[in-house]
């Protein structure tokens, strides 16, 4: 009952690749992901493609179909005409690994940089009380399945690679909005953080993130614009600004906007007190390479299984200035 249809699938890796033509059988009621599975089973067993639930709930099978960022499992073949060639490519904003699989670690890095939920300290589990109307706004954003189609389509990073470090992307703007609107979140400077460290100001609200969102989250109207307005409350209110100019408040050292390190604003240590804020080399774990992986060793490495618990590349004793340790014996306040 199936008919043969034409497909063009991008195949290759970071070293290069090309669009290849295939003829695949298509049956009634199928989606693009079904076609990819049929390709794997019949013509190209090593065609790489991510997928999981095949029901639009996990957000794994993000790809670009006829140039539009979409989920493979949510794109029905019936939306194309029978003689149309369907072009399938990997996401174009992220580095490609192979075929349709891209390296989306950018998003996980940004997720780590977004300050986490901070509950009130005095509330025990089970004592949380929240009204439905208060949680509904945040609930909309928690529908996010992290398919990263919004991140992929956002021209701020899609067309401008150099913006990746300062820009977190729509996915994390809705995360920031979700927490800022969370009735029990206590962190106050999320707006400031969004503007200063997540690149909220780079968004020019052209709404492509909303257009491609498979969960139909109103990313722009319900998260980004309200966050921009909240930033305006604090930053661009001319009265506040004028006040700052007149009283020269902006000459004062402003507390760092990074809430991860900046919850305590950096300050000069008192006499004799250790400087806990100073930069040190951090954990003494084994050094990882640029790809985040450990340096690779041969199977027959001479001292396998008996490596130093501090990492084989560490020479003891460590330089004292690298230790974030202060012996109480030296404390003048004792």
């Amino acid at each position: 009952m199936g008919t043969k249809r034409n497909f063009r699938v991008w195949r290759g890796d970071a070293g290069g690749g090309e669009l290849q033509d295939f003829q695949v059988e298509v049956n009634e009621g199928e989606v693009v992901l079904d076609i990819i599975h049929r390709l794997q089973a019949t013509q190209t067993p090593d065609l790489a493609c991510r997928w999981n639930c095949k029901a639009g709930k996990c957000g794994s099978c993000s790809m670009e179909i006829n140039g539009m960022p979409r989920l493979g499992c949510m794109t029905r073949m019936s939306t194309f005409t029978a003689d149309e060639t369907v072009t399938i490519t990997p996401l174009r904003t992220f580095p490609v690994i192979r075929d349709l699989v891209t390296d989306v670690s950018f998003n996980y890095r940004k997720a780590r940089e977004t300050p986490a939920f901070t509950p009130p300290a005095d509330l025990a589990p089970g004592e949380y009380r929240m009204q439905q109307v208060d949680v509904e706004r945040s609930q909309e954003f928690r529908k996010c399945i992290e398919c990263y189609l919004c991140q992929n389509t956002c021209h701020v990073i899609r067309d401008h690679e150099e913006n990746k470090p300062p820009f977190s992307g729509p996915r994390f703007f809705i995360r920031a909005a979700e927490l800022d609107m969370h009735p029990l979140d206590t962190l106050e400077d999320r707006k400031e953080y969004a503007q200063a460290s997540m690149g909220l100001g780079m968004c020019n609200i052209t709404k492509c993130c909303t257009e491609v969102c498979p969960e139909h989250i109103k990313i722009t109207d319900n998260a980004i614009i309200p966050m921009k307005e909240r930033v305006v409350d604090r930053r661009y209110d001319p009265l506040v600004w004028l006040g700052r100019k007149i009283f020269r408040r902006d000459q004062l050292p402003s507390p760092g906007p990074d809430p991860l390190l900046g919850v305590l604003p950096p300050r000069e240590p008192a006499e004799g007190e250790p400087d806990w804020q100073r930069r040190h080399h951090g954990a003494q774990g084994p050094a990882v390479g640029d790809d985040g992986h450990l340096p690779i060793t041969e199977l027959t490495f001479e001292n396998q299984g008996a490596g130093s618990p501090f990492g084989d590349d560490v020479t003891l004793p460590l330089p004292a200035e690298d230790l974030n340790y202060h012996h109480p014996r030296d404390d003048p306040r004792r």
């Binding site: 670009e64 389509t153 052209t206 492509c208």
Partner: peptide
């Protein structure tokens, strides 16, 4: 043209948004 449509390249080399 920044961008003209979704998944269509931006018409500009540099972009700083509304910062």
């Amino acid at each position: 043209l920044s961008p003209p449509a979704c998944a269509v390249p931006d018409g500009h080399k540099r972009y700083t948004g509304e910062t």
